[in-house]
Amino acid sequence: MRIRCPYCGARDNGEFSYLGDAAPRRPEGMAAEPAQMFDYVYLRDNPAGAIRELWYHAAGCRSWLVVTRDTRTHAIAGVAAARDVALAREAGR
C-alpha cells in the first residue's frame, strides 16, 4: 500500500504511523458528560467501506494527514493535510 502525501508524493506505507478514525472530536473539557467522554475515548465505528483516518508521515515530512481509505480494498480515495482539514472546519463554523 502506498499513500500519496500531499507534500512528498506517493510513499511506502512503512513511512507512516497509523492513529485511527479521524472523526472523533474531543468534548469541551470539564463540561462534558462522562458518557460523552466515554464515547470519545472508547467508542469507534468499524465500517466495511470508506473511512477517514489519521496517519502520520513519521519518516517523511512529519505531517499529520487525513486519509480516506476503503477498509475492504485498501483503495485510497483522497489524502489531505490534517492542518488544512482543521482550518477548513474552523472556517466553516
Binding site: 512528498c8 510513499r11 512503512g14 513511512e15 519518516a59 517523511g60 515530512c61
Partner: peptide, 10 residues
C-alpha cells in the same frame, strides 16, 4: 529533494 528512510535510517 526527499525526506525518507534509507535502510530504516532517517
Amino acid at each position: 529533494t526527499a525526506v525518507t528512510g534509507i535502510a530504516h535510517i532517517g
